[in-house]
Amino acid sequence: MEIARTYGISRFQVARYLEEARALGIVRIDVRFPAAATGLEPERLAAALGVAHVRVSPTGPDEHATRKAMAKGAAEELMAASFSGATLGVSWSRTLDLAAGYVTDLPPCGIVQLAGALPVPGSGNSLELIQGLGRHDGVATWPLWAPLVVENAATAQSLRRQPEIAETLARADSLDAAVVAVGAWQPGLSTVWDRVDNRLRLAAARAGAVAECSGRLVDAAGNPVDSELDERVLAVTVAQLQHTPRVVAVAQGAARADAVRAVLAAGFVTTLLVDEELAAALSGDAAQ
């Protein structure tokens, strides 16, 4: 309202301009909690959020320390979800990339790569993550030999017809458990955001995109967003995750609170792994 008065325009115009500015990365709204969340009760938070389990990881002095602690938690969740003969799906994020190094033991099982490769400077990629997990005795892997985001829908359709890629994507129909990461559809909060142009970013935001999970966009109500990006992504679908009995979702930072709520609304998350900062944000929202 103050901006509207200053510039002599309506507050609805201001809201529209802010939406566009956020989608283009010009404006970022980021709520930070000055101290670590203490006294959080994961069980109470889980009940408030409507998810079976919440696991809270310490927020460290810097982003790397926080990510390292979360990676250890993600590795423990993956090992806990595994059993002999299981089919496990693993997506990719910088946290999950680190988590693979903390997986100390896996029974004979299958590991399915849930998202195509998305190289990030200073980090590994989903192919390397799956290959690392495949070094455990008795573990079979189904890699996804394709990028996560391709140039256009026709290229994606062609790749999906390749036998190796088709088999891996089909394996996601019958997962026993999966571990995925949650990003927010904002600059700096999703690795996919940087792989597409401003036109697509803005179009997806206007279509309601709030969260990104394995390249799939979700709106605030938990519905998949119909956008050009969805046609260009090679990854597990929201529907496949909704048919998976056990899904661990990993997210970090208070700025991803809206994205986490959106993914929870989609109904496929059974365990939520978050850091203290994000847990405090979600706890405050749940109390309102």
Rank of each mutant, 00 (worst) to 15 (best):
V27C: 03
K72N: 02
A23L: 02
A46C: 03
E77C: 07
R32I: 14
V54K: 02
A36F: 00
E63K: 01
R16S: 14
A15Y: 08
A35S: 12
R16V: 07
E43H: 02
A23K: 01
H53T: 09
D62F: 14
E19N: 09
H53W: 12
Y17G: 06
A74R: 04
G50E: 11
A48M: 02
R28H: 04
A52Q: 12
E41C: 07
T59Y: 10
P42V: 09
P42N: 05
F33E: 15
A65F: 06
A35P: 03
A52P: 00
A21K: 00
R55S: 13
A71K: 07
V56F: 09
R22W: 04
L45D: 04
R67W: 10
T66W: 06
A21C: 01
D62R: 14
V54F: 02
A69D: 14
K68I: 09
V56T: 02
G73W: 01
R67Y: 12
A21I: 00
T66E: 09
E63A: 11
P34G: 05
A48T: 01
T59L: 14
V54A: 02
V54Q: 06
R16A: 15
I29T: 07
E41Y: 00
R28K: 04
V27Q: 08
A15C: 01
H64S: 08
G39T: 08
L24M: 08
V51L: 10
R28F: 00
L24W: 04
A37S: 10
R22T: 08
H64R: 12
E43N: 03
H64D: 15
A48C: 07
L49Y: 04
A15R: 13
L49P: 13
D62E: 15
D30N: 15
R16C: 07
R32F: 10
A46S: 08
Y17T: 05
A15S: 12
L24V: 08
L40G: 01
G60Q: 13
A65Q: 10
P42L: 04
P34R: 00
A71R: 05
E77L: 15
E19W: 03
A52M: 05
Y17P: 00
A15H: 12
A71T: 10
V51M: 10
E63M: 06
L24D: 06
A48W: 04
A47N: 01
P42S: 02
H53L: 09
E63V: 11
K72Q: 11
K72R: 09
A52I: 01
V14K: 04
R16Y: 12
Y17M: 06
A23F: 04
G25R: 04
A21G: 10
T66Y: 11
A21T: 02
E20A: 14
A35H: 12
E19M: 03
